[in-house]
Amino acid sequence: MFDLAPRRLSKLWAKQAAARAKQEAREAREKAAKEKAAADAAAKASPAPPAPEAGAPADGRAAKQAPASTASRCPVCGAAIGQARTGRPARYCGNPCRQAAHRARRRGAEAAGHAARLHERLADDARPPPAIWSTS
């Protein structure tokens, strides 16, 4: 009989814990709904936003928050770039120009690395040989 009591208690505790979790979830939903209703009421009560300045984007953002890529021309070929409604603004007119720009950047990095290695080699040649190489 004693071995059944802990099982009954654990079932009871599990039921109580589940009931508490449901109650806490219900209270959290009610609190969120009240906060949303208060925010909506505050938004309705606030005055209309000021008119955008000349040159500012029409969607109400400040002029300094305009997209970073405002260029409408491809930096590789100079063609016009179409602007998508969503997502990141395009930098290049298409994949061939994007790949050409990548290859040019990579060639520049490789050239810089080659120049650094050449500079090191020339600097190494200018150093005197280590003392263990001396014949005196």
Score class of each variant (00 low, 15 high):
residue 58 A to F: 09
residue 59 D to R: 15
residue 92 Y to F: 11
residue 73 R to I: 07
residue 42 A to E: 15
residue 59 D to G: 11
residue 29 R to L: 13
residue 121 R to A: 03
residue 100 A to M: 02
residue 8 R to G: 09
residue 83 Q to Y: 12
residue 32 A to H: 14
residue 25 A to Q: 14
residue 43 A to G: 11
residue 12 L to I: 09
residue 81 I to K: 00
residue 68 A to W: 13
residue 66 A to D: 04
residue 60 G to W: 02
residue 118 L to V: 04
residue 93 C to H: 02
residue 42 A to D: 08
residue 90 A to L: 07
residue 49 P to N: 10
residue 91 R to E: 04
residue 17 A to F: 13
residue 107 R to P: 00
residue 56 A to S: 15
residue 17 A to P: 07
residue 124 D to Q: 05
residue 98 R to T: 02
residue 68 A to R: 11
residue 98 R to C: 01
residue 92 Y to H: 04
residue 56 A to Y: 00
residue 121 R to F: 03
residue 118 L to F: 02
residue 112 A to V: 01
residue 37 A to K: 07
residue 87 G to L: 10
residue 43 A to P: 01
residue 124 D to K: 04
residue 45 A to L: 15
residue 10 S to A: 12
residue 37 A to R: 07
residue 19 A to V: 15
residue 120 E to C: 04
residue 20 R to G: 10
residue 119 H to Y: 04
residue 45 A to E: 14
residue 84 A to E: 13
residue 60 G to K: 08
residue 103 R to Y: 06
residue 39 A to I: 14
residue 38 A to V: 09
residue 99 Q to A: 05
residue 64 K to G: 08
residue 117 R to V: 02
residue 49 P to A: 14
residue 103 R to H: 04
residue 72 S to V: 14
residue 122 L to Y: 02
residue 117 R to G: 03
residue 67 P to C: 05
residue 65 Q to K: 11
residue 56 A to L: 07
residue 40 D to Y: 07
residue 22 K to Q: 08
residue 126 A to H: 03
residue 110 E to W: 02
residue 84 A to Q: 04
residue 42 A to L: 13
residue 29 R to F: 11
residue 29 R to Y: 12
residue 15 K to F: 11
residue 15 K to S: 09
residue 122 L to V: 08
residue 95 N to G: 00
residue 120 E to S: 02
residue 96 P to S: 05
residue 21 A to E: 11
residue 23 Q to H: 07
residue 62 A to R: 14
residue 45 A to R: 15
residue 90 A to F: 01
residue 99 Q to C: 01
residue 82 G to V: 03
residue 77 C to H: 13
residue 36 K to G: 06
residue 100 A to N: 01
residue 110 E to H: 03
residue 49 P to Q: 12
residue 88 R to S: 08
residue 21 A to F: 07
residue 41 A to M: 15
residue 10 S to R: 11
residue 84 A to L: 06
residue 93 C to S: 02
residue 18 A to Q: 12
residue 61 R to T: 11
residue 13 W to R: 11
residue 43 A to E: 15
residue 73 R to F: 06
residue 37 A to W: 05
residue 74 C to Q: 02
residue 8 R to P: 00
residue 17 A to Y: 06
residue 63 A to L: 14
residue 62 A to W: 13
residue 88 R to Q: 09
residue 53 E to K: 14
residue 87 G to Y: 06
residue 22 K to P: 00
residue 41 A to F: 15
residue 100 A to T: 03
residue 36 K to I: 08
residue 72 S to C: 10
residue 43 A to K: 15
residue 58 A to V: 13
residue 28 A to M: 12
residue 79 A to T: 12
residue 70 T to P: 00
residue 89 P to A: 09
